[in-house]
Computed example of a mutant assay.
Amino acid sequence: MGPVHESALDLRVSDLLTSDLLWNKKRIDQFLPAFSTQIQGLRPSRKGAEDAYVWTPLTTGIYSARSGYNATAQASHCPSAPISQPEAEFNWLKDIWSTKTSPKLKLFLWSTIQGALPLGVELQKRGLNAAALCPRCKEVETAMHTFFLCPFAKEVWNHVPFKTPVHIAEDMDFKSAIVKFRQALCLPPIGVRSPLLPWVCWSLWTARNKLIFEDKTNPPIEIATRGLAAALEWDQAQAVMISKTNPNIPQRAAPVRLISLDTENPCFVDAAWDSTAKRAGTAWILNKHLPHHARSGSQIFDNVNSPLMAESLALRNGIEELIKAGVQSTTVFSDCQTLIRAIVNKSQIKEAYGVLQDIDRLSSLFVSICFQFIPRSQNRETDFLAKQALQAHCCLIPYV
Protein backbone atom coordinates (compact mmCIF):
# COMPACT_ATOMS: atom_id res chain seq x y z
CA MET A 1 0.00 0.00 0.00
CA GLY A 2 1.32 3.42 -0.91
CA PRO A 3 1.61 6.46 1.34
CA VAL A 4 -1.51 8.17 2.64
CA HIS A 5 -1.49 11.85 3.53
CA GLU A 6 -2.26 12.45 7.23
CA SER A 7 -5.06 14.86 6.36
CA ALA A 8 -6.74 12.12 4.31
CA LEU A 9 -7.80 10.38 7.53
CA ASP A 10 -10.52 13.01 8.04
CA LEU A 11 -11.69 13.13 4.43
CA ARG A 12 -15.18 12.31 3.23
CA VAL A 13 -16.00 11.18 -0.30
CA SER A 14 -17.67 14.54 -0.91
CA ASP A 15 -14.35 16.26 -0.18
CA LEU A 16 -12.90 14.63 -3.30
CA LEU A 17 -15.75 15.69 -5.62
CA THR A 18 -16.22 18.92 -7.52
CA SER A 19 -19.41 20.97 -7.34
CA ASP A 20 -20.79 19.10 -10.38
CA LEU A 21 -20.08 15.72 -8.74
CA LEU A 22 -16.98 14.82 -10.75
CA TRP A 23 -13.74 13.62 -9.18
CA ASN A 24 -11.36 16.40 -8.14
CA LYS A 25 -8.16 14.91 -9.52
CA LYS A 26 -5.97 17.57 -7.91
CA ARG A 27 -7.25 16.79 -4.41
CA ILE A 28 -7.07 13.04 -4.98
CA ASP A 29 -3.44 13.32 -6.10
CA GLN A 30 -2.73 15.53 -3.08
CA PHE A 31 -4.23 13.32 -0.37
CA LEU A 32 -4.47 9.80 -1.83
CA PRO A 33 -1.96 9.57 -4.68
CA ALA A 34 -1.52 5.80 -4.31
CA PHE A 35 -5.24 5.23 -4.94
CA SER A 36 -5.80 7.84 -7.65
CA THR A 37 -6.40 5.35 -10.46
CA GLN A 38 -8.79 3.16 -8.43
CA ILE A 39 -10.81 6.13 -7.17
CA GLN A 40 -11.19 7.74 -10.60
CA GLY A 41 -12.34 4.39 -11.97
CA LEU A 42 -15.45 4.66 -9.78
CA ARG A 43 -18.42 6.51 -11.27
CA PRO A 44 -20.51 8.33 -8.65
CA SER A 45 -23.98 9.51 -9.56
CA ARG A 46 -24.03 12.97 -11.13
CA LYS A 47 -27.67 13.47 -10.13
CA GLY A 48 -27.23 13.13 -6.39
CA ALA A 49 -28.44 9.55 -5.92
CA GLU A 50 -28.27 8.33 -2.34
CA ASP A 51 -25.48 6.01 -1.23
CA ALA A 52 -26.40 2.36 -0.75
CA TYR A 53 -24.89 -0.79 0.69
CA VAL A 54 -23.90 -3.47 -1.82
CA TRP A 55 -23.28 -7.20 -1.39
CA THR A 56 -19.88 -7.66 -3.01
CA PRO A 57 -19.99 -11.43 -3.81
CA LEU A 58 -22.76 -10.82 -6.41
CA THR A 59 -22.55 -8.58 -9.46
CA THR A 60 -26.03 -7.24 -8.68
CA GLY A 61 -24.85 -6.06 -5.26
CA ILE A 62 -28.09 -7.42 -3.75
CA TYR A 63 -27.87 -9.97 -0.94
CA SER A 64 -29.55 -13.36 -1.26
CA ALA A 65 -29.72 -16.22 1.24
CA ARG A 66 -28.05 -18.55 -1.25
CA SER A 67 -25.08 -16.25 -1.86
CA GLY A 68 -24.74 -15.67 1.88
CA TYR A 69 -24.64 -19.41 2.51
CA ASN A 70 -22.08 -19.95 -0.27
CA ALA A 71 -19.87 -17.15 1.03
CA THR A 72 -20.01 -18.55 4.57
CA ALA A 73 -19.29 -22.10 3.39
CA GLN A 74 -16.34 -20.92 1.35
CA ALA A 75 -14.96 -18.89 4.24
CA SER A 76 -15.28 -21.85 6.60
CA HIS A 77 -13.42 -24.14 4.22
CA CYS A 78 -10.72 -21.54 3.57
CA PRO A 79 -10.65 -19.41 6.75
CA SER A 80 -7.45 -17.63 5.84
CA ALA A 81 -8.53 -16.77 2.29
CA PRO A 82 -10.78 -13.89 1.20
CA ILE A 83 -14.18 -14.61 -0.34
CA SER A 84 -13.06 -13.35 -3.73
CA GLN A 85 -10.01 -15.45 -4.57
CA PRO A 86 -7.63 -15.10 -7.49
CA GLU A 87 -8.08 -17.55 -10.34
CA ALA A 88 -4.76 -19.24 -9.48
CA GLU A 89 -5.96 -20.34 -6.01
CA PHE A 90 -7.97 -23.41 -5.08
CA ASN A 91 -11.62 -22.73 -4.34
CA TRP A 92 -13.75 -25.35 -2.55
CA LEU A 93 -17.01 -24.14 -4.05
CA LYS A 94 -15.73 -23.73 -7.59
CA ASP A 95 -13.35 -26.68 -7.81
CA ILE A 96 -15.30 -29.32 -5.88
CA TRP A 97 -18.91 -28.67 -4.96
CA SER A 98 -19.97 -26.70 -8.06
CA THR A 99 -17.95 -28.60 -10.64
CA LYS A 100 -19.97 -30.36 -13.35
CA THR A 101 -19.47 -33.97 -12.39
CA SER A 102 -21.18 -36.83 -10.54
CA PRO A 103 -21.96 -36.25 -6.83
CA LYS A 104 -20.06 -39.47 -6.08
CA LEU A 105 -16.93 -37.98 -7.66
CA LYS A 106 -17.32 -34.71 -5.75
CA LEU A 107 -17.21 -36.73 -2.53
CA PHE A 108 -14.24 -38.70 -3.91
CA LEU A 109 -12.28 -35.49 -4.61
CA TRP A 110 -13.17 -34.12 -1.16
CA SER A 111 -11.97 -37.38 0.46
CA THR A 112 -8.71 -37.23 -1.48
CA ILE A 113 -7.94 -33.67 -0.36
CA GLN A 114 -8.91 -34.41 3.25
CA GLY A 115 -6.59 -37.43 3.39
CA ALA A 116 -9.53 -39.82 3.86
CA LEU A 117 -8.62 -42.31 1.12
CA PRO A 118 -7.00 -45.54 2.42
CA LEU A 119 -3.65 -44.88 0.77
CA GLY A 120 -0.48 -46.35 2.30
CA VAL A 121 0.73 -43.10 3.85
CA GLU A 122 -2.72 -42.27 5.29
CA LEU A 123 -3.14 -45.76 6.78
CA GLN A 124 0.21 -45.56 8.55
CA LYS A 125 -0.68 -42.11 9.91
CA ARG A 126 -3.64 -43.78 11.59
CA GLY A 127 -1.45 -46.43 13.21
CA LEU A 128 -2.40 -49.29 10.90
CA ASN A 129 0.26 -51.85 10.05
CA ALA A 130 -0.08 -51.44 6.30
CA ALA A 131 2.40 -51.13 3.46
CA ALA A 132 3.05 -47.51 2.58
CA LEU A 133 4.40 -48.28 -0.88
CA CYS A 134 2.75 -48.06 -4.27
CA PRO A 135 1.73 -51.56 -5.45
CA ARG A 136 3.06 -50.79 -8.94
CA CYS A 137 6.41 -49.02 -8.54
CA LYS A 138 7.10 -49.40 -4.79
CA GLU A 139 7.45 -45.65 -4.22
CA VAL A 140 5.74 -44.01 -1.22
CA GLU A 141 1.99 -44.17 -1.90
CA THR A 142 0.49 -40.69 -1.60
CA ALA A 143 -2.48 -39.20 -3.42
CA MET A 144 -0.24 -37.21 -5.76
CA HIS A 145 1.85 -40.28 -6.52
CA THR A 146 -1.15 -42.54 -7.17
CA PHE A 147 -2.99 -40.13 -9.45
CA PHE A 148 -0.21 -38.19 -11.20
CA LEU A 149 3.42 -39.06 -10.42
CA CYS A 150 3.51 -42.86 -10.66
CA PRO A 151 4.90 -43.93 -14.08
CA PHE A 152 1.69 -45.93 -14.63
CA ALA A 153 -0.47 -42.87 -13.86
CA LYS A 154 1.63 -40.71 -16.20
CA GLU A 155 1.09 -43.22 -18.97
CA VAL A 156 -2.66 -43.13 -18.37
CA TRP A 157 -2.74 -39.32 -18.62
CA ASN A 158 -0.70 -39.49 -21.84
CA HIS A 159 -3.64 -41.32 -23.43
CA VAL A 160 -6.15 -38.61 -22.46
CA PRO A 161 -6.64 -36.32 -25.52
CA PHE A 162 -6.19 -32.88 -24.01
CA LYS A 163 -5.83 -29.86 -26.30
CA THR A 164 -2.66 -28.88 -24.43
CA PRO A 165 -0.73 -31.11 -22.01
CA VAL A 166 -1.04 -30.43 -18.28
CA HIS A 167 2.29 -30.50 -16.46
CA ILE A 168 2.25 -31.57 -12.79
CA ALA A 169 5.32 -30.70 -10.72
CA GLU A 170 6.78 -33.03 -8.09
CA ASP A 171 6.14 -30.56 -5.25
CA MET A 172 2.46 -29.90 -6.06
CA ASP A 173 -0.39 -30.97 -3.79
CA PHE A 174 -3.76 -32.30 -4.95
CA LYS A 175 -5.46 -28.88 -4.69
CA SER A 176 -2.85 -27.30 -6.96
CA ALA A 177 -3.28 -30.14 -9.45
CA ILE A 178 -7.04 -29.50 -9.62
CA VAL A 179 -6.37 -25.81 -10.34
CA LYS A 180 -3.94 -26.78 -13.13
CA PHE A 181 -6.65 -28.90 -14.77
CA ARG A 182 -9.29 -26.15 -14.71
CA GLN A 183 -8.77 -25.08 -18.32
CA ALA A 184 -7.89 -28.53 -19.69
CA LEU A 185 -10.05 -29.09 -22.79
CA CYS A 186 -10.75 -32.47 -24.34
CA LEU A 187 -10.20 -32.63 -28.09
CA PRO A 188 -12.90 -33.90 -30.46
CA PRO A 189 -14.27 -36.32 -31.41
CA ILE A 190 -14.55 -37.43 -27.75
CA GLY A 191 -16.99 -34.59 -27.07
CA VAL A 192 -16.72 -34.49 -23.27
CA ARG A 193 -17.66 -31.06 -21.91
CA SER A 194 -17.42 -31.78 -18.17
CA PRO A 195 -14.04 -31.82 -16.34
CA LEU A 196 -12.08 -35.00 -17.03
CA LEU A 197 -9.87 -35.00 -13.93
CA PRO A 198 -12.45 -36.58 -11.55
CA TRP A 199 -13.25 -39.39 -14.00
CA VAL A 200 -9.65 -40.28 -14.82
CA CYS A 201 -8.65 -40.18 -11.13
CA TRP A 202 -11.61 -42.43 -10.28
CA SER A 203 -10.58 -44.85 -13.03
CA LEU A 204 -7.04 -44.91 -11.62
CA TRP A 205 -8.40 -45.49 -8.11
CA THR A 206 -10.61 -48.43 -9.09
CA ALA A 207 -7.73 -49.94 -11.12
CA ARG A 208 -5.44 -49.62 -8.07
CA ASN A 209 -7.99 -51.42 -5.87
CA LYS A 210 -8.42 -54.23 -8.41
CA LEU A 211 -4.67 -54.73 -8.45
CA ILE A 212 -4.46 -54.94 -4.65
CA PHE A 213 -7.60 -56.99 -3.89
CA GLU A 214 -8.07 -59.04 -7.07
CA ASP A 215 -4.54 -59.11 -8.45
CA LYS A 216 -5.89 -57.84 -11.77
CA THR A 217 -4.16 -55.29 -13.92
CA ASN A 218 -5.10 -53.46 -17.11
CA PRO A 219 -3.00 -51.49 -19.60
CA PRO A 220 -2.89 -47.69 -19.18
CA ILE A 221 -4.82 -47.04 -22.40
CA GLU A 222 -7.73 -49.10 -21.08
CA ILE A 223 -7.79 -47.16 -17.79
CA ALA A 224 -7.84 -43.86 -19.71
CA THR A 225 -10.60 -45.14 -22.02
CA ARG A 226 -12.75 -46.17 -19.05
CA GLY A 227 -12.48 -42.70 -17.55
CA LEU A 228 -13.34 -41.03 -20.88
CA ALA A 229 -16.28 -43.38 -21.50
CA ALA A 230 -17.71 -42.77 -18.02
CA ALA A 231 -17.37 -39.00 -18.44
CA LEU A 232 -19.05 -39.09 -21.86
CA GLU A 233 -21.89 -41.30 -20.60
CA TRP A 234 -22.55 -38.93 -17.67
CA ASP A 235 -22.37 -35.91 -20.00
CA GLN A 236 -24.94 -37.37 -22.38
CA ALA A 237 -27.23 -38.37 -19.50
CA GLN A 238 -27.26 -34.78 -18.26
CA ALA A 239 -28.19 -33.50 -21.71
CA VAL A 240 -31.10 -35.98 -21.90
CA MET A 241 -32.27 -34.99 -18.42
CA ILE A 242 -32.22 -31.29 -19.30
CA SER A 243 -34.17 -31.86 -22.53
CA LYS A 244 -36.83 -33.87 -20.63
CA THR A 245 -37.11 -31.23 -17.90
CA ASN A 246 -37.23 -28.37 -20.42
CA PRO A 247 -38.87 -29.75 -23.59
CA ASN A 248 -39.18 -26.24 -25.06
CA ILE A 249 -35.42 -25.67 -25.18
CA PRO A 250 -34.52 -25.45 -28.90
CA GLN A 251 -32.03 -28.02 -30.13
CA ARG A 252 -30.58 -25.59 -32.67
CA ALA A 253 -29.46 -22.03 -32.25
CA ALA A 254 -32.36 -19.75 -33.04
CA PRO A 255 -31.82 -17.41 -35.99
CA VAL A 256 -31.01 -13.81 -35.14
CA ARG A 257 -34.27 -11.89 -34.90
CA LEU A 258 -34.27 -8.40 -36.36
CA ILE A 259 -35.76 -5.79 -34.05
CA SER A 260 -38.25 -3.30 -35.48
CA LEU A 261 -36.75 0.18 -35.43
CA ASP A 262 -39.95 1.92 -36.51
CA THR A 263 -40.48 3.89 -33.29
CA GLU A 264 -40.80 7.55 -32.40
CA ASN A 265 -37.41 9.29 -32.10
CA PRO A 266 -35.26 6.14 -31.91
CA CYS A 267 -31.90 6.74 -30.25
CA PHE A 268 -28.98 4.34 -30.76
CA VAL A 269 -26.06 4.21 -28.32
CA ASP A 270 -22.84 2.22 -28.25
CA ALA A 271 -19.34 2.24 -26.79
CA ALA A 272 -15.83 1.09 -27.72
CA TRP A 273 -13.42 0.27 -24.90
CA ASP A 274 -9.61 0.41 -24.85
CA SER A 275 -8.59 -2.20 -22.26
CA THR A 276 -4.98 -0.97 -22.13
CA ALA A 277 -5.62 2.74 -21.60
CA LYS A 278 -8.89 2.16 -19.66
CA ARG A 279 -10.57 4.62 -22.01
CA ALA A 280 -13.98 4.50 -23.69
CA GLY A 281 -15.37 6.13 -26.79
CA THR A 282 -19.16 6.54 -26.67
CA ALA A 283 -21.55 7.52 -29.43
CA TRP A 284 -25.25 8.20 -30.00
CA ILE A 285 -27.42 8.62 -33.10
CA LEU A 286 -30.93 10.07 -33.08
CA ASN A 287 -33.39 9.32 -35.93
CA LYS A 288 -30.80 7.59 -38.11
CA HIS A 289 -33.50 6.39 -40.54
CA LEU A 290 -34.61 10.02 -41.14
CA PRO A 291 -31.58 11.57 -42.94
CA HIS A 292 -32.82 15.17 -42.73
CA HIS A 293 -33.51 14.89 -39.00
CA ALA A 294 -30.63 12.66 -37.95
CA ARG A 295 -28.29 13.89 -35.23
CA SER A 296 -25.25 12.20 -33.76
CA GLY A 297 -22.38 12.78 -31.38
CA SER A 298 -19.56 11.10 -29.51
CA GLN A 299 -17.57 11.55 -26.31
CA ILE A 300 -14.42 10.16 -24.69
CA PHE A 301 -14.28 8.94 -21.08
CA ASP A 302 -11.08 8.14 -19.19
CA ASN A 303 -10.66 5.76 -16.23
CA VAL A 304 -13.26 3.29 -17.48
CA ASN A 305 -12.64 -0.15 -15.96
CA SER A 306 -14.88 -2.42 -18.05
CA PRO A 307 -16.90 -2.69 -21.28
CA LEU A 308 -20.10 -2.73 -19.21
CA MET A 309 -19.21 0.61 -17.62
CA ALA A 310 -18.44 2.00 -21.08
CA GLU A 311 -21.87 0.91 -22.35
CA SER A 312 -23.54 2.44 -19.28
CA LEU A 313 -21.82 5.78 -19.85
CA ALA A 314 -22.80 5.70 -23.52
CA LEU A 315 -26.46 5.15 -22.66
CA ARG A 316 -26.51 7.90 -20.02
CA ASN A 317 -24.82 10.28 -22.45
CA GLY A 318 -27.38 9.46 -25.13
CA ILE A 319 -30.30 10.22 -22.78
CA GLU A 320 -28.71 13.54 -21.78
CA GLU A 321 -28.42 14.49 -25.47
CA LEU A 322 -32.09 13.62 -26.03
CA ILE A 323 -33.07 15.93 -23.17
CA LYS A 324 -30.96 18.75 -24.66
CA ALA A 325 -32.71 18.19 -28.00
CA GLY A 326 -36.11 18.56 -26.34
CA VAL A 327 -37.24 15.01 -27.15
CA GLN A 328 -40.24 13.92 -25.05
CA SER A 329 -40.81 10.36 -26.30
CA THR A 330 -38.13 7.91 -27.43
CA THR A 331 -36.89 4.36 -27.59
CA VAL A 332 -33.23 3.87 -26.70
CA PHE A 333 -31.49 0.98 -28.46
CA SER A 334 -28.30 -0.70 -27.18
CA ASP A 335 -26.51 -3.93 -28.07
CA CYS A 336 -25.53 -4.52 -24.42
CA GLN A 337 -28.11 -7.05 -23.24
CA THR A 338 -26.88 -7.08 -19.62
CA LEU A 339 -27.36 -3.33 -19.34
CA ILE A 340 -30.80 -3.27 -20.97
CA ARG A 341 -31.98 -6.15 -18.77
CA ALA A 342 -30.83 -4.31 -15.63
CA ILE A 343 -32.65 -1.11 -16.65
CA VAL A 344 -35.90 -2.81 -17.71
CA ASN A 345 -36.02 -5.06 -14.63
CA LYS A 346 -34.90 -2.24 -12.34
CA SER A 347 -32.12 -4.45 -11.02
CA GLN A 348 -28.68 -3.26 -10.04
CA ILE A 349 -25.14 -3.82 -11.25
CA LYS A 350 -22.81 -2.85 -8.41
CA GLU A 351 -19.99 -1.48 -10.60
CA ALA A 352 -22.41 0.83 -12.46
CA TYR A 353 -24.67 1.72 -9.53
CA GLY A 354 -24.24 5.50 -9.78
CA VAL A 355 -24.68 5.59 -13.57
CA LEU A 356 -27.80 3.40 -13.44
CA GLN A 357 -29.29 5.66 -10.78
CA ASP A 358 -28.69 8.64 -13.08
CA ILE A 359 -30.34 6.82 -16.00
CA ASP A 360 -33.39 6.13 -13.83
CA ARG A 361 -33.68 9.76 -12.74
CA LEU A 362 -33.16 11.12 -16.25
CA SER A 363 -35.80 8.71 -17.60
CA SER A 364 -38.43 10.33 -15.37
CA LEU A 365 -38.06 13.55 -17.41
CA PHE A 366 -39.60 11.95 -20.52
CA VAL A 367 -43.27 11.55 -21.32
CA SER A 368 -42.44 8.12 -22.71
CA ILE A 369 -39.13 6.25 -22.85
CA CYS A 370 -38.39 2.59 -23.63
CA PHE A 371 -35.14 0.64 -23.60
CA GLN A 372 -34.59 -2.06 -26.20
CA PHE A 373 -31.80 -4.53 -26.90
CA ILE A 374 -30.77 -4.94 -30.55
CA PRO A 375 -28.19 -7.23 -32.17
CA ARG A 376 -24.84 -5.63 -32.93
CA SER A 377 -25.55 -6.06 -36.65
CA GLN A 378 -28.33 -3.47 -36.32
CA ASN A 379 -26.13 -1.01 -34.45
CA ARG A 380 -23.13 -0.84 -36.77
CA GLU A 381 -23.31 2.89 -37.49
CA THR A 382 -23.18 3.80 -33.80
CA ASP A 383 -20.45 1.23 -33.19
CA PHE A 384 -18.40 2.79 -35.99
CA LEU A 385 -18.81 6.28 -34.50
CA ALA A 386 -17.70 5.10 -31.06
CA LYS A 387 -14.63 3.34 -32.44
CA GLN A 388 -13.83 6.31 -34.64
CA ALA A 389 -13.93 8.64 -31.62
CA LEU A 390 -11.64 6.34 -29.65
CA GLN A 391 -9.24 5.96 -32.57
CA ALA A 392 -9.05 9.69 -33.09
CA HIS A 393 -8.17 10.16 -29.41
CA CYS A 394 -5.49 7.48 -29.23
CA CYS A 395 -3.65 5.25 -31.68
CA LEU A 396 -4.15 2.16 -29.49
CA ILE A 397 -7.26 0.20 -30.55
CA PRO A 398 -7.47 -3.11 -28.59
CA TYR A 399 -11.26 -3.01 -28.65
CA VAL A 400 -13.22 -5.46 -26.55
Rank of each mutant, 00 (worst) to 15 (best):
E222S: 13
L9P: 00
G281Y: 07
S260Y: 06
F90D: 12
S102G: 02
A65N: 06
S203V: 03
A143C: 09
V160K: 00
Q85M: 15
S306I: 00
L107F: 12
L261W: 07
L107Q: 10
L365G: 15
S76T: 06
W284E: 02
K387M: 06
S306F: 04
P86M: 12
P79N: 06
S176H: 13
S334Y: 02
L356F: 12
A130F: 07
V156S: 03
D95V: 01
G326Q: 04
E6C: 14
A230Y: 02
C336I: 02
L58G: 03
L128E: 06
M309Q: 12
I285E: 13
F148N: 03
T112W: 02
E122C: 04
L290W: 15
Q183F: 00
I285S: 14
E141H: 08
A280N: 08
L313H: 05
N218T: 15
A352D: 14
Q124N: 02
F268I: 08
L16T: 00
L123R: 11
R226H: 13
R226D: 09
F35M: 10
A314Y: 07
K210P: 02
P250M: 07
K278N: 15
S329Q: 12
G115I: 01
L105P: 05
Q328P: 00
T37E: 07
W234R: 00
K387H: 04
D173C: 07
T142W: 11
T56I: 09
H289F: 15
I223H: 05
L185Y: 14
K210D: 06
F268V: 06
S377Y: 04
P195D: 14
F35D: 03
T112P: 00
K25F: 02
T142C: 09
V304W: 10
P398Q: 11
I221F: 02
V13G: 01
T37S: 14
W157M: 10
N158I: 08
S368D: 09
V332C: 05
A52V: 10
A65H: 11
R136P: 03
H167I: 08
E87F: 15
R43L: 13
A177R: 05
A280I: 07
D173E: 06
A177Q: 05
V166C: 13
T282C: 13
Q30G: 13
Q124A: 12
S275W: 09
I369F: 06
N129P: 11
I249W: 01
G61T: 08
R226M: 08
I259H: 08
C201Y: 05
L365E: 14
L258N: 12
T142V: 09
V179A: 04
S102A: 13
R361L: 08
E264W: 00
M144K: 13
S203L: 02
H292E: 09
C267H: 03
G318L: 10
Y399K: 15
S306R: 09
S306T: 04
N287F: 05
A169D: 04
P250E: 11
I223W: 05
A75E: 03
Q238P: 09
T282E: 01
S203C: 05
I212K: 00
P255E: 13
R279G: 06
Q85R: 14
N129R: 14
C395A: 15
G120L: 11
P165G: 14
D29Q: 03
L228F: 03
L322Y: 07
Q328A: 12
R182S: 06
S364V: 02
S14V: 09
R182A: 09
A386G: 04
P86H: 05
I96T: 07
I190S: 00
T142H: 01
K244C: 01
K106P: 06
I285R: 10
D15E: 02
